[in-house]
Simulated scan of single mutants.
Amino acid sequence: MASSMIHLNPMARGYTYKPAPGETGKATDESIVLAFHQSLPSYNETTLHTLPAVAVALGLSHVLVKDESNRFGLPAFKILGASWAAYRAVLTALGLDDKQQATAATTLMSVAELGSIARDRGLRIVTSTEGNCGRAVARMAKYLGLPVRVFVPEYMSEATRQKIRGEGAEVLVVKGTYEDTIPIIRKEAKEMKESVLVLDVGLDGYEVVPKLQYFVEGYSSMLAESDKQVPELTGGNAATHAVVPCGAGSIAQAVAQHYKAAERQAQHGSAMVIAVEATTAASLKTSLGAGQPTLVPTADTIMNGMNCGSLSTLAWPVLSQGVDASVVVSDQESHSAVEELKSSGILAGPCGAATLAALRRVCADPRARSALALGSEAIVVLHCTEGARDYLIPS
């Protein structure tokens, strides 16, 4: 361990991600999913910014920021996973998710056609959220023309609830935390046969959507775009490091799978993956230290999208082997990173800016820096997963 704020995971250096039996190869998955996203209304390829001054200050070759502040008109990356997951979940509910549709982009049913069939069957979508994911699922339900119920914890702000309602969703407030919403939506999905449950985490008793990695596969479009963009900014070189927020773990799992995939390593060599969490919700760092998934108590943080006390049961096997370092940062560090990115014209929220804070932390620690090969040839991609939003500035 380099410091109390950093956990190094040396075993990840030799890790190669290989799809489990029954999964298709990731390169094929990425092309299929990207084609799906390109078919949706208002598809846009998000910007990859360069931070030359930060790279010079930290002694790195390039520091790049994949900016997810405007994805399909929403201020976060979640719509990528939510749209693909909801699409595939509805296909499955209708008995239409056969092998041909799963392996060839040309055979994917259009969203309009799928929505028409689903409406005739009276289907509706049910989900639970702490923020961006619920809004993203609601947006996909709107694309499909299906009703959607979104269960939220009572601490969610009214402004956030209104944004979800603005997508046409019915919002139901549950007393307690996010975890308290889970048994309620499970019961509804079980009792109401027309309800299609869509969640972005793997839970005991609910693993159908995550097991097939629908959310994780959905995030691959962001990574496919980035792989194309990075060489354009670096003289033809690929990324050597990726920094990604880790809440429940799905986006970090997607990044680890992508950068540790056998095909990518054969073409570009291995890349380091650094996950960042809030000091108040360090479930991955704690779990890596314990060698097993570990539930941790959480507290309020401006990085509320990362305020998760447990990891997805399906993300853990990849994270435990594929994440090279887990870093925790404070609210103050995240806020400072928000301001730093703003000065460079990048409007980030605290979760997205936390990646820059994490990079600064590991570069300031000689042992971590050496172990992670953060030298003059390093090309680092920061995955800025959310745009600017209101939050209480830490004192």
Rank of each mutant, 00 (worst) to 15 (best):
A2F: 01
A2E: 04
N9W: 07
P10Y: 08
R13Y: 02
K26P: 03
K26E: 09
A27S: 07
S31A: 14
I32F: 08
L34Y: 10
A35N: 10
A35Q: 13
L40F: 05
T46Q: 13
P52E: 09
A53K: 13
A53G: 02
A55Y: 09
A55F: 06
H62K: 14
H62R: 14
D67M: 03
N70V: 02
L74M: 13
L80A: 13
L80M: 11
G81H: 02
G81C: 04
W84F: 14
A85G: 08
A93T: 00
L94T: 11
L94N: 07
L96P: 12
D97T: 08
A104Y: 10
L114H: 04
I117W: 00
V126C: 04
V126W: 09
G134F: 01
G134D: 01
V137I: 13
M140T: 10
A141N: 01
A141W: 03
K142H: 06
G145P: 09
L146M: 00
P147H: 07
V150W: 04
E154F: 11
E154L: 00
M156W: 01
E158F: 04
T160R: 15
R161M: 13
K163M: 05
E170S: 12
K175W: 03
P183Q: 05
I184H: 11
R186W: 11
R186P: 00
A189N: 05
A189T: 06
V201T: 14
L203A: 07
D204H: 10
G205T: 04
V208Q: 12
Q213A: 12
G218M: 11
D227N: 12
K228T: 14
Q229N: 03
V230M: 02
V230F: 02
V230K: 00
P231N: 08
E232S: 12
E232A: 15
G235L: 09
T240L: 00
H241I: 09
H241T: 15
P245G: 02
G247D: 06
G247L: 03
A248L: 08
G249V: 10
G249D: 06
A254S: 14
V255E: 01
A256M: 00
Q257Y: 02
Y259Q: 03
K260G: 04
E263H: 14
A266Y: 03
G269W: 02
S270A: 14
S270T: 15
A278L: 06
A281L: 08
T294I: 11
L295T: 13
L295A: 13
A299T: 09
N304H: 11
S310V: 10
S312E: 12
T313S: 15
L319A: 07
G322N: 10
S326P: 09
V327H: 02
V329R: 05
V329Q: 09
D331V: 08
S334K: 03
S344M: 12
L347R: 07
L347M: 14
G349N: 00
P350K: 03
P350E: 11
L359M: 04
C363R: 05
D365E: 13
R369K: 12
L374R: 01
L374M: 03
V380H: 02
V381R: 06
A388K: 07
R389K: 15
